[in-house]
Design a protein around this nucleic acid. Structure first.
Lengths: 231, 231
DNA sequence: CGTGCCTTTGAGAAATATCAAAGCCTGTGG
DNA sequence: CCACAGGCTTTGATATTTCTCAAAGGCACG
């Protein structure tokens, strides 16, 4: 196992306030793990034995209903902590984390959580911030689902993915991970049929282009209007 | 201002692991505040200058959409911390807290948050647990809204309020704070008309009784069946 | 004892799901 | 290099849920 170099990660918010020596200490305790696309990093309801940092790839966080329906909570971009059950005062993972594409992950035993929180400046604070951002996003989704129509929710979901995980290309901003109609419908509480119709309509209007599993947004302003329900 | 007595609150989970002297220190720094029914304790988006502990009454946590729709996130029973923006790494309150009925609240300046978290055993952990419970509930609601019909969601919302804030009476379990059709619809992403129809139907079937602003659940099992969609 | 919420009920409209069928990429294995 | 299989996507027709709008009754508090 090759040694991890602190300089690679020092630009992440998590480590921003830490001296290099602290970062190196933390990295020396980590185990790197390569997760193939489609495989889960951990499963909802199992013992939260480790916490994780995503270095590369994209994680999809899912929950299952009692009758097997899947709901996608959010996507995690590189640089973020995840699987941090301890920050929620929990002993089991509250959701399943699936690699949307091949992921490089750092893994620490959860027993180190308390130590990291107290010993390293900014660690606990950054963990709180991560939790806060997720709470806010979830709150926003409750709000959207309660008050908006499917069209607005789908537009908002695509907008959010574009903002958080977009990559500019010559053909508009591309969402940086594979994304099917089914997954968008799972995110918005809709059906893949309705999502397909919406995407087709938006493609006709020049708002975006979608090839199989990929979405390129052309007209951000139009998408924002759709999300706001002004059109 | 009369002095607060540690023995009153020592049974709360927040203070369970703390010596009486610590509890007294914490209480000596608190300011009590009586909030009349219907008044807000703090408003979404304003600077999070204080954090709070509910001693008596019931708090309703709300958010407003850009176009003025209200969504009720959850209810807070006595004994819980709230307005703990710092635990989410935020500087403004993420939502508005309204007194569902007259409330007695303890208030501390947010500047004490970091100190309490580091100095008092179990404080940070209990705060995490509180955050975790709210995240879990919100997660559950996203899931419900995404996969279930209005009838199931309304049943689940009433069931949850009954479990978290129920009071046994001779006439079934009563939800311990005033609750209108409009609020139930705001909680479930529905309309007061639909909620009214559902409650009327359930009353005919003997599942519950609802007078103006009050709900008594008679048949818990039936309500659970409705929430599960098995009927 | 009136006025303002809260609630009920009905009829019609709209959004979205469901079901069915078929087309189309893409990666795989021959 | 080609054909195939499986998953992804499109589109149409129909069904259903739930909202919207309208009108009126009733309870509680001042």
């Amino acid at each position: 196992m090759k040694k991890l170099d602190a300089s690679v990660v020092r630009s992440l918010p998590l480590f921003a306030q830490m001296p290099l020596s602290d970062i190196q200490d933390i990295l020396d305790l980590a185990r790197p793990r390569l997760v193939p696309a489609g495989q889960s990093v951990f499963e909802e309801g199992t013992e939260a034995s480790h916490f994780h940092l995503l270095l590369d790839g994209h994680i999809r966080v899912e929950r299952l209903t009692p009758d097997g329906d899947r709901v996608v909570s959010f996507h995690i971009p590189p640089g973020q902590l995840f699987g941090i059950a301890k920050a929620l005062g929990r002993d089991v993972y509250p959701a399943t984390a699936v690699a949307a594409l091949e992921c490089l992950v750092l893994v620490w035993p959860m027993t180190l959580w308390t130590r990291f929180s107290t010993e390293y400046a900014g660690f606990a604070q950054e963990a709180s911030r991560t939790v806060g951002a997720r709470v806010t996003e979830m709150h926003t989704r409750v709000l959207e689902m309660a008050t908006q129509h499917v069209e607005q929710r789908v537009a908002a979901a695509i907008l959010r993915m574009m903002q958080q995980n977009g990559r500019p290309t010559e053909d508009g901003i591309e969402i940086a991970f594979p994304i099917t109609r089914k997954i968008v419908s799972d995110m918005t509480g809709s059906t893949l049929f309705t999502v397909s119709r919406l995407l087709s309509a938006w493609e006709r209007e020049g708002v975006l282009v979608s090839r199989r599993k990929h979405i390129h947004v052309h007209n951000v302003a139009a998408l924002e209007r759709l999300a706001a329900g002004q059109s």
